[in-house]
Amino acid sequence: MTLEGRRIVCDYGPVRALAGIDLHAAGGEIVAIVGPNGAGKTTLLRVLSGERRPDRGEVTLNGSRVSGSDAAWRARIGLVSHRTGLYEKLTAMENLRFFAALHGLARSGRKLTATLDAVGARGLAGRRIEALSRGQRQRVALARSLLHDPEFLFLDEPFSGLDPEGAAGLERALVARRNDGVAVVLVTHDLRRGLRLADRVVVLRRGRKVLDGEAAEDEAAEILDHFTAGAPDP
């Protein structure tokens, strides 16, 4: 099970956000996409998840093209972003129940509670999202993204705003999913966390891939060099 982006090009008007990126993510690995602001990380994630159609290039799953207009593909992916995407006036349980129903899952309250427990959100089920802290919301968002047991998990700066305990909990949840065979694609500007967590690190800079390799400790210095090399980004 390999998701592959081939020669992905994306433009925002005259600005080229992605300039012919190749990238793959297989089941059972965490791929961290790192790079400075404006490097094209989020755009690449949106293309891989099917939210945005590339201007050129294609995204394939085991050789067959996938896109966001395909409901079967959407049923196989989960997304966590720095915006939690939860309804503030609904409780955590009501949010989970709503999204589970959209996925066609008749999940009982006990199962949904277990999903919350699994991400360290025990006791939040009956509380409205507007009453939760940033870290608590992010845990509920993670629970929402895992409800339907996705095969591909996309995360866009999921650690932003989390306290150390919340970040550690999220890391544990991602590693557990990776061990279950899920392909995790993680976008972060936090290089050190990306290096620690990922099996493979892809470094983007100004819409180009400057490094794609295993995140071994001895490569960290080289990756750091790529990360910070050259003139500052506009």
Partner: peptide
């Protein structure tokens, strides 16, 4: 409000 519609569109819902 907090990007919820993006997540609705990412479910299989037509």
């Amino acid at each position: 409000e907090d990007g919820a519609f993006r997540h609705v569109l990412l479910t299989p819902v037509s």
